[in-house]
Structures are given as C-alpha cells and as structure tokens.
Simulated assay, not measured.
Amino acid sequence: MYIADQTWPELRESLADESVALVPLGSTEQHGPHLPLATDHLIAEALATAAAEETGAVRTPTVTVGVSPHHRQFPGTMWVDAPEFRDYVESFTRHLTYHGIDRVVYVNAHGGNVQHLREVGRRLHEDGEAYAIEWMWDESIPDLVDDLFEHNGPHAGPKETAMITHIAPELVRDGQFENARDDGLVDLESADTMVHGARTFYDSVDNSANGAFGDPTDVTPEKAERLFEAAADQLVQLTEWLRARDSEELLPKDRVE
C-alpha cells in the first residue's frame, strides 16, 4: 500500500492492523554515460512497491537525494550532507511510529547511504522507539549477481544497468554500453589508486573518467527480469519475517547480570 495515495479515513482503518513500513531511499547522481541520474531511487522505489503490493506493508514516499558528494564532479549530481540526511531520516521514522508503525525497512539502493541508515537504525533501536533496518538489494542476492555478470562493478555496472533495463528501459542509453565499459573502469581491483593496501581515492572520478564501473555489455532483458524478481522476493521474505517477530524480540536486551 502506497501511503500517499490513500485518504486519511482509509489509512485510519488500514494502519490499525499494520506494523511494517517500507521506506525507499536512493540518490540523484551520475551513473555513467548510459544510465539516468535517477537510477538508485528508481530501483529502490520499484522494489519497495513490488514488496508492498505482495505483503500489504505500507510504502512511504521515496527519498530521492542521498549522501553522494563522491560523485559531485559530474554535472547534475545532487547530495545532502551526512548529518542532515541522518537527522531527516530519523525524524520522519520517529513520526511514523505516531501512526502505529514500529518496524521499518530502509529499502536502499545507494551505497553512500548505507552507514548512515545503519546509524539511524541503531539510534532508534537504542531508545526503543522503533526497529529499523537497512536493506541493500544487491547484497541480498550476491551469488546471483556474480553468476549473471563477470564484471559487476560497484556503480553504474551491469547489475544497476539490468535493474533499470527492467524498470524503465526507455531511460537506458544502450548505445553507450561500450563507452561505459571502455572509458570507465571494468575492474576496481586493478585500479592504481590502491597503494600498499591503502585507498588513495575519495571521489568516483579518481577511478573512472566517465563514472562507470564494470561491464554492462552483457545485460539482457532476461537477466534483468531474473535479477529484479530475485531481489523483490528477498524483500518480501524480509518484510514477512519482520512482521512475524514479537515486539519484545526487537527491543534492546537487558543488561547482562
């Protein structure tokens, strides 16, 4: 159920029996020459929508701008500072509890958000306000991602290309696939910015001139559908697992005596 499409009398009834909310979060940032800046938040929203429709959980509006300063050199990239991002997400999550929601899945599709969402979840858990967990779609199906693509790349590679191919194929510039591969960085481990075990880079452009990592040329609609359906199924299972938990299980444990 998408909460913003409902009226308040409708929500008065439906929220009375629901404890779980799915909050999609992504970014608005460069994704190479072949994918739109909306890539991350489109993926998060599509997965959250699919899981909400399957489980009946509440889906909130999407957070479309995340923590992305490491992509700032590419035109159009937007970002918010990390403390403000954390405070914003924490604030609206606390206010969800006012309506009876006490379990939240941050349906995340942007790596730059991960540590900050986990920190917000820790804060909420620590004071017993809510149980909120961060879920990153590709981390839920790592074996499948590795099986489907030889050179995944952490950003704007085949896995994200496949997801947008399934969700919004009209936004994919497939004529730029070879350019994304050849002028980007296919294998991050081969980058010369790792020196004696230290990461000497801070920004995406330090490693990839066009912002792409990996090889998107072997993406097909069939692989794209398989990837999306597998990730959506993992989110459905997580939502149902969370809903089935007794509230006492989710509260912080007492001090060990």
Rank of each mutant, 00 (worst) to 15 (best):
A46P: 02
S14C: 00
D81T: 11
G56I: 04
R72V: 11
L22R: 10
L15A: 14
L35S: 11
T77F: 02
G56T: 04
L35D: 12
T55Y: 07
G76P: 04
P33F: 03
R12I: 13
P24N: 07
D40R: 10
L15D: 05
A52N: 07
S19I: 12
W8H: 09
G26A: 00
R72E: 14
R12L: 14
Q30F: 00
T77D: 03
D5A: 12
T49Q: 15
A38S: 15
H31C: 05
L47S: 06
S14M: 10
L15M: 13
E18W: 06
H31S: 06
T62F: 04
G56E: 04
D17E: 14
H70D: 15
G56V: 06
T49G: 12
P61D: 03
V65F: 07
Q6H: 13
E54V: 09
G76W: 12
G56F: 04
A52F: 10
Q30D: 01
A51P: 04
W8E: 00
R12W: 08
A50T: 13
P75C: 02
V63C: 10
T39D: 01
A50V: 09
E53Y: 06
V58F: 02
E10K: 10
A16K: 11
Q30G: 02
T60G: 02
H41M: 02
V23W: 12
L47D: 01
Q6Y: 03
G66I: 03
T49H: 14
Q6K: 14
T55F: 05
G26Y: 08
A46M: 12
P75N: 08
A16P: 00
R59K: 15
T62E: 04
T39Y: 07
L15S: 07
D17C: 00
M78R: 10
T49Y: 05
H31V: 11
L11W: 08
R12N: 13
E29K: 04
G26H: 09
A50M: 09
L15F: 05
P33T: 09
D40E: 12
E53V: 14
W8N: 00
G32P: 00
T60F: 03
D5Q: 12
D17H: 13
V23E: 02
A44C: 03
E18F: 06
P24K: 10
S27W: 06
P61C: 11
P33Q: 11
L22H: 01
